[in-house]
């Protein structure tokens, strides 16, 4: 109970800090986007081939683009206050609907990527630390340096070449086999198969980072007195590593995971394009080219929500892992 109260305090602190952050993000994003040249009306007019001044004015009026920027901002904020993200001038549907269609795909991709990054990174780092200075450590260090230095889209393309084209094991894009009419477990497996390559491409960079971090942390923790105490109890090496070393070594790694979430989301834009993954990243990319600012703002807002929620989860995880974490 004491334990839960402590976690609740951590939660409350994080949420209180999040409110001004989100407000700041909205206003900043809005103003920055307004600085960019061109708006939805321009792009649409360009696509029609030609448009009269009157048509343009009419379009702008309909989208609310004709009033001063500050007024647009206030209108947007008051919309938000009513939990509405506005309409997409482009598609004529509520932004929340567009995002709602894409969000689950991206979330799944991110969760999977993060799970791979964590699981593989920690395993890799622990293996490197346990063999520090010997050849497994050297080889794995090289591998992780490779993951760290090559760009995600290139890894993505190479994985497609290897696993889809050459070996024909995994699909090269999309998130499900279209028209296969699969149900139940088969459907889930099909989705999973589609997810492996994009999630891995997204994760490998972070696998390298968590691997290096874990290696350093495990080495540091292994020389602590309490690890010697554990050995003096007669515990076998595996139990010492799992119960006493890794749990402490995870502390510095989890702290950084929160920071990396934004990065993973950014990387998703590229990876979703490479794998034609119908997610938020591609939606954002499309809305930039179409000057569909309402959609873009919605995506950005949601992204910051995601990052903040993830950070909160990481804070909670950290507090749960480390009993010394208290509200300051």
């Amino acid at each position: 109970m004491l334990e839960n109260r402590r976690l609740l305090r951590v939660l409350r602190r994080t949420v209180l800090q999040a409110v001004p952050t989100i407000l700041g993000i909205i206003i900043l994003n809005f103003l920055l986007l307004k600085l960019a040249p061109g708006d939805a009306a321009d792009v649409m007019a360009g696509e029609f081939g030609a448009a009269t001044e009157e048509t343009m004015a009419m379009l702008r009026q309909r989208f609310g683009l004709d009033v001063p920027v500050l007024q647009q901002l206030l209108a947007y904020l008051s919309n938000l206050a009513q939990f509405s993200l506005g309409q997409s001038p482009r598609y004529g549907v509520p932004v929340s609907e567009l995002i709602g269609q894409r969000l689950p795909s991206t979330l799944m991709l991110m969760v999977m990527a993060l799970a791979i990054a964590f699981g593989l990174g920690i395993a890799l780092g622990t293996a490197m630390a346990l063999t520090a200075g010997r050849w497994p450590d050297r080889v794995l260090s090289l591998v992780s340096l490779f993951f760290y230095s090559v760009p995600g889209f290139w890894i993505g393309l190479m994985l497609i070449v290897l696993f889809s084209v050459k070996l024909n094991w995994l699909p090269s894009g999309g998130q499900e086999t279209i028209g296969a009419g699969l149900t139940g477990l088969d459907y889930a497996l099909d989705r999973l198969k589609h997810m492996i390559l994009p999630a891995t491409s997204l994760a490998l960079f972070y696998v390298a980072i968590y691997g290096r971090l874990t290696r350093a942390a495990v080495l540091e923790v292994s020389s602590q007195d309490y690890v010697r105490t554990a050995a003096a109890k007669g515990l076998p090496p595996l139990a010492i590593t799992l119960r006493h070393v890794i749990r402490n070594a995870l502390l510095p790694v989890t702290t950084l995971a929160g920071i990396h979430l934004g990065g993973i989301l950014g990387g998703a834009v590229v990876i979703e394009t490479v794998y034609s993954w119908p997610g938020l990243g591609r939606l954002a990319f499309e809305s930039v080219t179409r000057r569909d600012f309402n959609v873009l703002l919605g995506v950005l807002l949601l992204s910051s929500f995601l990052v903040i929620i993830a950070n909160t989860l990481v804070d909670l995880l950290h507090a749960w892992l480390d009993p010394r974490v208290e509200v300051r």
Binding site: Q224, D225, Y226, A232, K233, G234, H244, R247, N248, P323
Partner: peptide, 27 residues
């Protein structure tokens, strides 16, 4: 493996530094 059965069961040891000899994340 036999030595592990001696440690903690037949021969136990306590250390100089009580501040750092206990694992901080376990009760």
């Amino acid at each position: 493996p036999d030595m592990r059965k001696v440690r903690g069961r037949e021969i136990a040891m306590i250390f100089q530094e009580p501040m750092t000899s206990l694992n901080p994340v376990l009760t």
